[in-house]
Design a protein around this nucleic acid. Structure first.
Lengths: 127, 127
DNA sequence: ACCTTTCATAGATAAACTTCGATGTAGACG
DNA sequence: CGTCTACATCGAAGTTTATCTATGAAAGGT
């Protein structure tokens, strides 16, 4: 890795206010930019969590025995219609955060622990 | 904590398919539901991360020295207009994930490590 | 005083999202 | 076969969002 002298100089200059406005404020970042594809893939998972109802659904399922629950258990706690809850659950499944398994007439949704762990890891090591 | 016999029975029944359709599929969840207010507050942070451009901005800033960068460093890597980048940065600041400090004509945006750590913790311990 | 640079804000537009009621589907029971 | 339950899907309405261009604001240089 190259020594980012321009970046350091630029930042020192900006902090000390010793350079003129025509100087670059700091160097272009050295590391490669996160690709748009991977950013889109990862952001989709955070986006799925980033909605109050879906976050509550995740919390409900995670706190249930076996970390799974059926739709009929989730509709009443979140106070929304059954189609809306089903839609949010589908979103979470599409994001890879939940799995669906039909048993009889019921659909059981279960947490995917590895998916949440991966995101947690990413937050602590955003590279 | 009470023993959730109904939940276990319901789940066993569903797995073994020994009960009729008129039986409850499983018990209402025992734990209290995450409040709508806290869910909204937390989801707002995940929502801020859950957008490809903002995720890339976070990664760019996190990988910069001092975990801070100015707008002029970020516009070109993400390939969007300056107002759009500023808008996304404001969103991240409002979510508490970044701080802004003006020095001269430049605005430096810095990571708030504790905010990311809190979210990571929450993902591994979804209560 | 004037211009340049850096950034934020305003307004507009097109796309996406949340939510609902209505309807379709699949399994269980009589 | 008909009915009921649990759930998914469809279509629509209203809201939010991402992006742009144009403009405003603040600080520094000449």
């Amino acid at each position: 890795m190259l020594f980012d002298a321009w970046g350091i100089l630029g930042r020192m200059a900006s902090e000390l206010n010793v350079l003129g406005g025509t100087e670059p404020c700091c160097a272009p970042l050295v590391g490669e930019v996160m690709s748009l594809e991977s950013a889109t893939a990862i952001a989709a998972k955070f986006k799925a969590i980033g909605e109050p109802t879906r976050l509550r659904l995740l919390a409900l399922i995670a706190s249930a025995e076996g970390q799974e629950a059926c739709v009929c258990d989730l509709t009443e706690p979140v106070g929304l219609s059954q189609p809306t809850v089903s839609h949010h659950l589908k979103t979470l499944v599409d994001a890879g955060l939940l799995t669906r398994s039909k048993r009889g007439t019921w659909s059981f949704y279960a947490i995917v622990p590895a998916a949440l762990a991966d995101l947690a890891q990413l937050l602590q090591n955003p590279t």
